[in-house]
């Protein structure tokens, strides 16, 4: 039983990070109907940048993460301006191809700068485990969960109540009509990419603290794909719920099934779930339906 709860907790924590990264993915999909296949590289770069600030520049963690967030926001703005804006009226498939190219470029760059060996974050969170009624949770898991949940709540409030949040949803709903309200579509796109990059970086930093950083971290860009497809590509709530489902399922598969089959199921399991769910609900759990362009 404790093993089960242990697996559940780790699934929830990793799932919450998936949810965060998936949020950025969904935002971009909602704004421009395109899949951002460079998302995993955004996660990786965020993680490396923060790590470098801490280990090389010896900055305190909070300052390092602050700078990482600013850096990521700027990276998002730059990507939007240089890669996406020229494709504003281009077909969706061109946009997707551009994000693949961008992902490869960024992957190459990180390899040049940081190499391929796994780098560990120095100890940031205390390492004495906390026990909750028999269940042992390491502080890094607990903190990750708290940070992610605060961010998810903050974004939910932002989208629900703030002027810019409402404008972003308006653009997602009907771009032309939003423009006719005097909403600057350019600005909304730029902010969307900035937010997507920032949440990806937070995800990267937290995952880095849990597992260390190397190039395989960008695989999360692919893992998030089942998450968002499961939730329905265009649903923020779906991304969050999907993140938890996939996180937990993956953790359970890793804990119970992998020992039986000799490993490897953990990474495939999310896709199996997605296929099963899509057979019942073709537009995902929360998707709006209608013909997808991808």
């Amino acid at each position: 039983m404790t093993f089960f709860i242990q697996m559940l907790v780790s699934g929830i924590v990793v799932g919450s990070i998936y949810a965060l990264v998936a949020l950025g993915f969904v935002l971009i999909y909602k704004a421009s109907d395109a899949l951002n296949l460079a998302n995993g590289e955004f996660v990786l770069i965020g993680s490396y940048v923060c790590l470098t600030l801490i280990t090389v520049l010896k900055l305190p963690f909070l300052l390092a993460i602050l700078i990482t967030l600013v850096f990521s926001a700027l990276l998002g703005l730059m990507v939007e301006k240089m890669v996406l804006r020229p494709l504003l009226n281009a077909p969706t498939i061109s946009v997707i191809m551009a994000t693949i190219g961008l992902g490869n470029l960024l992957a190459g760059l990180t390899h040049v700068v940081w190499g391929h060996q796994t780098r560990m974050y120095p100890q940031i969170f205390p390492d004495t485990p906390v026990t909750f009624g028999g269940v042992i949770i390491t502080p890094v898991y607990l903190w990750s969960f708290v940070i992610v949940m605060s961010l998810l709540i903050a974004f939910t409030v932002f989208f629900k109540f703030s002027k810019m949040g409402i404008a972003m949803r308006a653009v997602a709903d009907d771009l032309q009509a939003a423009a006719s309200m005097g909403i600057s579509v350019k600005k909304v796109f730029a902010i969307t990419w900035a937010i997507a990059c920032v949440v990806a970086a937070v995800g990267g930093v937290l995952l880095g603290n849990i597992n260390g950083v190397n190039a395989t971290m960008s695989v999360i860009g692919l893992t998030v794909l089942p998450v968002v497809i499961l939730g329905g590509l265009d649903s923020i709530a779906g991304a969050i719920v999907g993140g938890f489902i996939i996180g937990i399922a993956q953790s359970m598969a890793g804990g119970y099934l992998d020992p039986m089959v000799g490993g490897g199921l953990k990474d495939v399991f999310p896709f199996i779930i997605v296929i099963l769910i899509l057979m019942i609900k073709p537009y995902g759990l929360f998707g709006k339906g209608g013909v997808e362009r991808v």
């Binding site: 409402i166 949803r169 308006a170 997602a172 709903d173 009907d174 032309q176 009509a177 939003a178 006719s180 709006k288």
Partner: peptide, 11 residues
């Protein structure tokens, strides 16, 4: 106010 109303359906 555009032709066809164009309200934001999900808002």
């Amino acid at each position: 106010s555009m032709e066809g109303r164009r309200v934001f359906k999900h808002l």
